[in-house]
Simulated scan of single mutants.
Amino acid sequence: MVSRTTPLVVFLSDNGGCAEELPPPDAPKFRDRQPAHTPDGVPIKLGNDPGIRPGGEDTFCSYGKAWANLSNTPFRYYKRWVHEGGIATPLIAHWPGGGLDTGRIVRAPHQLTDVLPTLLDAAGIPSAAGPGGSMLAELRGESGEEERMLFWEHIGNAAARRGRWKIVREAGSAWELYDMANDRTERHDLAAQEPGLVEELASRWQEWADSVGVVPWDTIRAAGR
Results as ranks from 00 to 15, higher is better:
Lys65Tyr: 13
Ser134Phe: 11
Trp152Met: 08
Leu119Met: 13
His110Gly: 13
Glu170Gln: 12
Ala68Lys: 01
Ala137Phe: 09
Gly163Leu: 02
Asn157Ser: 09
Trp81Lys: 13
Leu100Cys: 04
Ile87Trp: 08
Gln111Trp: 02
Thr113Ala: 15
Gly99Glu: 03
His110Phe: 12
Gly130Lys: 05
Pro96Gly: 07
Arg80His: 11
Asn157Thr: 07
Ser71His: 13
Arg107Tyr: 13
Ala108Trp: 12
Lys166Ile: 10
Leu139Lys: 05
Thr113Tyr: 14
Arg162Ala: 09
Ala68Glu: 06
Ala160Asp: 04
Trp165Glu: 04
Leu91Ser: 04
Gly98Met: 06
Gly130Pro: 11
Gly85Ser: 02
Val168Leu: 00
Lys79Ala: 00
Ala68Ser: 12
Gly85Asp: 05
Trp67His: 14
Tyr63Ser: 12
Glu138Asp: 15
Trp67Leu: 15
Val115Asp: 10
Arg80Phe: 12
Glu153Asn: 12
Ala68Thr: 12
Val106Arg: 02
Gly103Glu: 02
Met135Gln: 03
Trp81Ile: 15
Asn72Gly: 11
Leu139His: 01
Thr73Gly: 12
Lys65Leu: 14
Glu138Gln: 15
Gly141Asp: 02
Glu153Thr: 14
Ile167Asn: 01
Glu84Met: 06
Ala129Tyr: 10
Leu136Phe: 09
Val106His: 15
Arg148Leu: 02
Met149Arg: 08
Gly144Val: 00
Leu139Glu: 07
Ile167Gln: 01
Leu70His: 12
Leu136Trp: 07
Ala129Thr: 15
Arg104Val: 14
Val168Asp: 00
Arg162Thr: 11
Ala158Thr: 05
Arg169Leu: 06
Ala160Ser: 11
Ala93Tyr: 09
Gly133Thr: 13
Gly98Gln: 06
Arg104Lys: 11
Pro131Lys: 05
Pro131Gln: 08
Thr73Met: 14
Pro131Trp: 07
Asp114Glu: 04
Pro74Ser: 07
Arg148Gln: 04
Arg169Glu: 04
Arg107Leu: 14
Ser127Ile: 08
Thr118Cys: 06
Pro74Trp: 01
Trp95Ile: 03
Leu150Arg: 05
Gly163Val: 04
Thr113Phe: 15
Pro126Asp: 05
Pro96Gln: 07
His110Asp: 09
Gly163Phe: 13
Pro90Thr: 08
Asn69Trp: 13
Ala158His: 07
Ala108Thr: 15
Ala129Gln: 11
